[in-house]
Write a protein that binds this DNA or RNA. Structure first.
Length: 216
DNA sequence: CGGCCGATCAGCT
DNA sequence: GCTGATCGGCCGA
């Protein structure tokens, strides 16, 4: 990642979130390269944002990396079993971040499949079941708390972001997921995704034969 | 120190 | 669509 790109991470989360769409999240494990196109993100706006872990300036051992330099990762553990990854952005100390919610996997799919484990009946998982959710993509890329605070601009920890290759597609926008408790912030449209992309979360695409809302 | 709950997922109905 | 899994973090006492 170049110095210019690094500088661009110092922008507000609601500007960075759509800009990350189409870019690549890359992981190197044991010499192997795993990568996916970022197709879904959510912006979290720091102290003012009731849905943010940094709401009202909350700062604990768990979320301290949110207050670090733009361009580092904030990885947290939730629901007793899942990890989620954010890109810290804005000015240092602002505690803004962008949650990566889904990827379209393009490199290292076999490694991802192994990390995700077998699907129902031991059947290998479909491509769109690998990274179509914030917990899933962390499992597929073996991202856990050991990568909390990792510098994504140097990639030294084996995790970084690269420019995309070509058009990202039409960007859709909606309220964020799973933040119903956040008052008016719950309805604020801070979720961004690539319209029509099969790897966006919550499509039920991993369940063939299942009815789903008509897409457009 | 106890209790509650979550930026989720998968499996069943 | 609904719910159990599963446990660390956080808050209140």
């Amino acid at each position: 990642m170049t110095a210019v790109e690094r500088e661009r991470l110092a922008i507000a989360a609601d500007l960075l979130a759509p800009r990350l769409l189409g870019m690549l999240l890359v992981r190197r494990i044991a010499g192997k390269r795993l990568a996916g196109i970022i197709v879904e993100t959510e912006a979290y706006l720091g102290a003012v944002d009731r849905a943010s872990h940094a709401f009202a300036g909350r700062r604990t051992a768990r979320n301290q990396s949110m207050y670090g330099r733009p361009g580092i990762a904030y990885v947290y553990f939730t629901y007793g079993m899942h990890h989620c990854m954010n890109v810290v952005c804005g000015r240092e100390g602002e505690a803004s971040a962008v949650l990566l919610r889904a990827l379209e996997p393009i490199e290292g799919l076999e490694v991802m499949r192994r990390a995700r484990g077998p699907g129902r009946g031991g059947v290998p998982r479909a491509d769109q079941e690998l990274c179509s959710g914030p917990g899933k993509l962390c499992q597929a890329l073996s991202i856990d708390r050991s990568l909390d605070g990792a510098d994504l601009t140097t990639g030294k920890a084996g995790l970084w972001i690269e420019p995309g290759r070509g058009e990202a597609g039409v960007v859709g926008r909606s309220a964020r997921v799973g933040v119903d408790y956040a008052g008016e912030w719950a309805a604020t449209p801070l979720r961004f995704f690539i319209e029509g992309n099969a790897h966006v979360s919550g499509k039920g695409g991993a369940r063939p034969g299942r009815k789903r809302a008509g897409g457009g």
